[in-house]
Write a protein that binds this DNA or RNA. Structure first.
Lengths: 215, 215
DNA sequence: TTATTAGTTAACCAATTGGTTAGTTAATTG
DNA sequence: CAATTAACTAACCAATTGGTTAACTAATAA
């Protein structure tokens, strides 16, 4: 039985789902097994029935989240649209994912704030970073190919594409990562975060476009 | 006596110093009072002699760190230098501080990953964000004044300055915040982080300059 | 039907935790 | 000097923690 019936598989899934919420709220050390069980409305012993220990649950949560994040940020199309549209597409994908999955982003941030110890240890990106779609892959990444063409045709000046991608992502993600700061000092009126993000997207598009186009 | 002799004051200072290291390594919940005492080579009971409890030590650590961070990132001069130099100055200040204080940045990142609960609660920026030097202060911030002048003189196009500052800071800080990612996927050759930062600084200067200058 | 296996549970436990206490030593003060 | 206060310590403790165990139930298979 074990792995295939609905009920039983869903218990294992539930554990991961609520464990993620717990790790997010309290971090690895602050997370409590009992609370995960309570949230999932199951007996605590089930955690140890399906997983070896706390560390392993965290590991699987990390892997699951990073895969989701990467898979979502990777979907840059291969279409040969005007640069304006391409830049917009990239920024939209990043901002939309961050908007819809604030929790996932926060766990990434948490893991990075720990120096990414487990992130490195578990070889989470081993396969995916070699994928031909991985945006930072200089040989095959779709973004690389696209901008390479635009540089050769002279539409944009010669730039380091890894830096361009980091710059775009950095500008977008900063809006989410430093949100507590912005709210505290009142960069935008409270509850106007969405409007703030919309403005930011437009600002970044224009800054980057003007920054890379040939004069 | 208490507060004024060297030896005794330095015990209290030692606690904060090593508590910061501990919080950084393990987060709030993972931090152990015994380990802080061991690191500081003092008796554990001294922690409770000088501070009410663990939470208060974290609070004071946070306040101390945020003050240092802000005070360092605030020092943008009032000088009327060419835009090239001004952009460079801002980027240098951010990158240099991040390079020299990786630990501080990581605790900021950690606190933000928790949603900045304590950051908001302790009113850490209450005073400082109203300072006339605070870069995001639109009325008096030095950066605002400088760029405002450049916009009026027509050297740069009309832009939202808060967004500009966030964009610059975001691009610089991304290099440090996402370091575990960059190292895992090999964006730069290992042990070449400094070179990578130097490249990034140059890239950002050029992108931003071309992005805001009038054609 | 019966045996086997998977799923689930309550009760339990050793180890660790943040925090306290009662007392000692060292410094300051009058 | 004696008296007071501050700095410091070892031993302790209640509460909590991650993890185990032995027993129970429900499903599947022969």
């Amino acid at each position: 039985m074990a792995n295939n019936t609905n009920i039983k598989y869903s218990t294992k899934e539930k554990i991961l789902k609520y464990a993620i919420k717990e790790f997010l709220e309290y971090g690895f050390y602050g997370a409590r097994m009992q609370r995960i069980a309570d949230k999932a409305k199951i007996n605590k012993a089930m955690l140890f029935y399906y997983y070896k220990n706390k560390k392993q649950i965290y590991k699987e949560a990390l892997i699951s989240i990073f895969k989701t994040v990467i898979e979502n940020l990777i979907n840059i199309s291969n279409e040969d649209v005007p640069i304006e549209d391409k830049i917009k597409e990239i920024i939209d994908i990043y901002a939309d994912f961050a908007t819809k999955n604030p929790d996932y982003l926060r766990l990434v941030q948490y893991e990075f704030s720990r120096g990414g110890k487990d992130f490195a240890k578990y070889n989470i990106l081993k396969d995916i970073s070699k994928s031909q779609f991985f945006p930072l892959n200089p040989d095959t990444g779709n973004i690389f190919k696209y901008f390479d063409k635009k540089m050769k045709s002279g539409e944009i000046r010669n730039i380091n594409l890894a830096h361009l991608i980091i710059s775009i992502a950095g500008q977008v993600m900063a809006s989410f990562f430093a949100r507590p700061l912005f709210e505290t000092i009142g960069v935008y009126k409270s509850s106007d975060f969405d409007k703030f993000i919309k403005e930011r997207k437009e600002f970044i598009v224009k800054l980057v476009l003007d920054g890379i186009k040939k004069k």
